[in-house]
Design a protein around this nucleic acid. Structure first.
Length: 273
DNA sequence: CCAGTATCCTGCAGGC
DNA sequence: TGCCTGCAGGATACTG
């Protein structure tokens, strides 16, 4: 579900609502997620710590607490965080609940369980295997210089490369398609057969799309919402994702979709080359 | 090493 | 109406 703009929107909402809040209690049920969710373990570690800040690395959220330690969260496909009053009914598939001293709850809801919540002691963060393998942050101004050589070394198509978190982080199926349309690039183009100039332009498109989406609060397709229930309004600005069969807003020809790297990908055969 | 596919899980839309 | 199939915003284990 959430790509970088949604995760960044969640991060900002947490920083708006939670600083200083002290955890009184942890609730939930241990289940299998991307990593096993161990509620008993978290119940021992989290209470009496205060929320300090939320960081983001790619699509990962890192919630820092004092005394120091970090709750690592990934929302997978269907995960969301929700800040709620205790009186508010818990949604189905609420797996983890942090209960603060003031009564508010931070809930992790994830029907498909592709997400994760895992405690990282301060010294563990640098060695976490998921974090260690992550690539470039796409909002860095240097991306047009750093992305091209990585893509030029690969034979896979650029769409697959954009979604490979070891190369660039934060880009998923929606924003890969949007960035490619914006830079007039065919998703199936092999990385090693694309010029540095064009890859630099693609990098600029990635950054532009992500920043625009952040400013709209992300993309709500069906169930995404920020922790304070704000919806994302970038869906109305999508040019290609999910628009197969409809006309390209740039040239009018019909958008087509094909499965690339296991993911449905829509693009304009006329203006993306 | 690299590239491509299968897999984890639930919900929902569409076809019959 | 109800049942079945396929697909969905992701990451990773596996295969060749």
């Amino acid at each position: 579900m959430p790509e970088l703009p949604e995760v960044e929107t969640v991060r900002r909402a947490l920083e708006l609502h939670l600083p200083g809040a002290r955890i009184a209690k942890v609730d939930g049920r241990s289940i299998a997620m991307r990593r096993p969710l161990d509620v008993d373990h978290l119940s021992e570690l989290l209470p009496t710590r205060r929320f300090v800040r939320a960081r983001r690395r790619g699509k990962f959220l890192l919630l820092d607490f004092d005394p120091p330690g970090t709750l690592l969260i990934h929302l997978g496909m269907s995960g969301r965080l929700q800040i709620g009053a205790p009186s508010r009914p818990r949604l189905a598939h609420t797996h983890l609940v942090l209960i603060f001293e003031d009564g508010r709850e931070l809930r992790l809801v994830d029907p498909r369980r592709f997400g994760l919540a895992d405690w990282l002691a301060t010294e563990e963060e640098a060695h976490d295997p998921s974090l260690a393998a992550l690539g470039l942050e796409p909002l860095d101004a240097s991306l047009p210089d750093t992305l091209p050589p990585l893509f030029r070394a690969r034979r896979s198509c650029v769409k697959t490369l954009l979604m490979d978190q070891r190369l660039v982080v934060g880009v998923g199926n929606i924003y890969a398609a949007e960035a490619l349309w914006r830079s007039g690039m065919r998703p199936t183009r092999p990385g090693n057969r694309t010029s540095v100039t064009r890859l630099g332009n693609l990098a600029r498109s990635v950054r532009a799309v992500l920043e625009e989406a952040i400013s709209e609060g992300g993309t709500t397709l069906r169930d995404y919402a920020a922790p304070d229930d704000e919806l994302g309004y970038f869906a109305v600005r999508l040019q290609v994702y999910g628009r197969q069969g409809q006309p390209c807003t740039r040239c009018g020809s019909e958008l087509r979709a094909e499965v690339i790297g296991g993911r449905t990908t829509a693009w304009c055969r006329r203006c993306q080359r």
